[in-house]
Amino acid sequence: MEVEAAKLIGAGIAAIPLAGAGVGLGLIFGNFLAGAFRNPSAAAANQQTMLLAFALTEFTGLLGFVIAMIILYAF
């Protein structure tokens, strides 16, 4: 039973990176919006970069999520 409890705690800890990913995504979208409001004509050209940054940032959180899943289900 202790192993079970440790797994659950470990999965919870492994979900912490999601907070960082959330902050990062907020920064990306927030800064993109700020820039887009300042210069709306340049916004469309930078959308691709924004989505790319979104994908790269999201990966950190997803890695945490996957590790949580592996702890929960694979061990």
Binding site: E58, F59, L62, L63, F65, V66
Partner: peptide, 16 residues
């Protein structure tokens, strides 16, 4: 790794 895991994890997380 990141390319594969990103897509996999997104789908996994969404469906879970």
């Amino acid at each position: 790794v990141s390319l594969g895991v990103r897509l996999f994890a997104n789908m996994l997380a969404g469906h879970i």
